[in-house]
Structure formats: structure tokens, C-alpha cells
Amino acid sequence: MAEIVNLRRARKQKARTEAGKQAEQNRIAFGRSKAERNLTEAERAKAERHIEGHRLSRDDAPEKA
């Protein structure tokens, strides 16, 4: 004989599984600590300053004619 399946329970279990997958993706995307966010921001700012410091022509310097 076939196994009897309660459709309501099956739907709820499927919804829980999908919600769990979505939660895992959100934890990966947004679940960083404040220290990690600050570190990433500091690294980005340092890289930006480094690139800006090596720029050949600057907007604030007077151009030679």
C-alpha cells in the first residue's frame, strides 16, 4: 500500500524548507558584524585614497599652458 500523506503538513514542511533556504541566503548577504562592516569600509577608503594619490593629473592643481 502507498503511504498516506497529510497535504497540509507537506505544504507547511515545504514552506519551512524554503524559508530556511531564504534565511541562509540572507545570513550570508547581510549577517556581518559591525566590526566586519567597518573593516570593509576602511579597506575601501584606503584603496580609494591610494588610487587617488597615484593619479597623474589632479583637478585641484593648476594646469600648465
Rank of each mutant, 00 (worst) to 15 (best):
K46M: 10
A29L: 15
A35V: 05
E3R: 07
K34F: 01
R49S: 01
F30C: 05
E24G: 08
L39D: 05
K21N: 07
R55Y: 05
K64V: 06
E43P: 01
N26H: 09
K21P: 00
R9E: 15
S57V: 14
R11A: 14
A47Y: 05
E24S: 10
G53L: 04
A47F: 07
L39P: 02
V5Y: 06
K14L: 10
E63A: 14
F30H: 07
S33T: 00
T40K: 14
F30G: 04
N6V: 03
S33V: 02
A2E: 10
R11F: 08
N26I: 12
G53H: 01
R11Q: 15
R27W: 01
K64F: 13
T17S: 12
R27C: 02
A42D: 00
P62M: 07
A65L: 15
A42N: 01
A15V: 13
R9N: 15
A47C: 04
A23W: 08
R44I: 03
H54V: 08
A35L: 04
H54F: 13
A2P: 03
E41D: 05
A42P: 01
R49L: 02
R32K: 12
G31S: 01
I28N: 06
M1V: 00
A10T: 11
K12V: 13
T17A: 14
E18D: 10
A61F: 11
R58V: 11
E52W: 09
Q13D: 09
A10R: 14
Q25K: 15
E52S: 09
L39R: 13
E18H: 05
